[in-house]
Design a protein around this nucleic acid. Structure first.
Length: 222
DNA sequence: CTCCAGGGGGCCA
DNA sequence: TGGCCCCATGGA
């Protein structure tokens, strides 16, 4: 399995190149974006973040102080704005009470994962995105695209794998390298958006087309 | 008009 | 656990 995952990474990186993730700059913007993008197109997230920038609210202390209602109105374009405002307020409080982002960086991946997930509204993917992209610690981020692509390659055949099981597939078979984990997840997103939309099979220009020999007809049948 | 987007929680069996 | 519903805006 390790060989196949390395091959996938090699093919994707050589085809698409570095993805320079996370889009947007700064730790706070990454953290905020990680929550805002929950089941939401990045386009809409960008509008919400632009509003927050104008209001000087891409700042943990500021988010912790602003009223939930005011914050909610600013992030409306991202959808689910009331629940997301609540989630980001709780996340900001957790970070402030932890002594800020710099203090979070001194915690272990396991500790961060446990604490972040204990914040209401921060699940597996959001926690891991924050740990990898904002705090730059080695953890593999799994999302719906990851499952869809692996499934179409026939690598999840039959079994209904949980988030942690899919994650372990990568963590146990690859070197724990922040840069590589960063690019790998971003490349999956790039691949999915380019060649693997929800109701379409991988097309013939897909950089992973040569992996057909490893899998079944699922790629052809979509 | 319908479908969907870089999820997550609550509820219920 | 696993399925289902809810959260909501904007693009295709």
């Amino acid at each position: 399995m390790g060989r196949i995952l390395e091959k996938i990474y090699f093919l994707l990186y050589n085809h698409f190149g570095s993805q320079h993730w996370w889009p947007g700059d700064g730790e706070v913007e990454i953290i905020v974006g990680a929550v805002l993008t929950q089941n939401t197109s990045w386009r809409n997230v960008e509008r919400a973040i632009a509003n927050l920038k104008d209001a000087g609210l891409v700042d943990i202390e500021a988010i912790n102080k602003v009223s939930e209602n005011e914050f909610a109105n600013l992030i409306k374009p991202s959808g689910f704005y009331r629940i997301k405002a609540q989630r980001l307020k709780e996340l900001a409080r957790y970070i402030v009470e932890s002594g800020g982002i710099s203090n979070l960086k001194s915690k272990s991946v396991e500790e961060l994962r446990r604490e972040l997930k204990s914040v209401k509204g921060i699940g597996d993917e959001t926690a891991d995105s924050i740990i990898l992209y904002a705090l730059e610690k080695p953890i593999f981020v799994v999302d719906s695209y990851t499952r869809r692509i692996l499934s179409r390659l026939g690598l999840l055949e039959g079994q209904d794998m949980s988030y942690s099981e899919v994650q372990e597939l990568f963590m146990k078979n690859l070197k724990h390298d922040v840069k590589m984990f960063n690019e790998f997840h971003a490349l999956f997103v790039k691949l999915a958006k380019t060649y693997c939309t929800k109701n379409a099979p991988l097309c013939v220009q897909c950089p992973l087309r040569l992996l057909c020999s490893f899998s079944s007809k699922r790629i052809l049948s979509g």
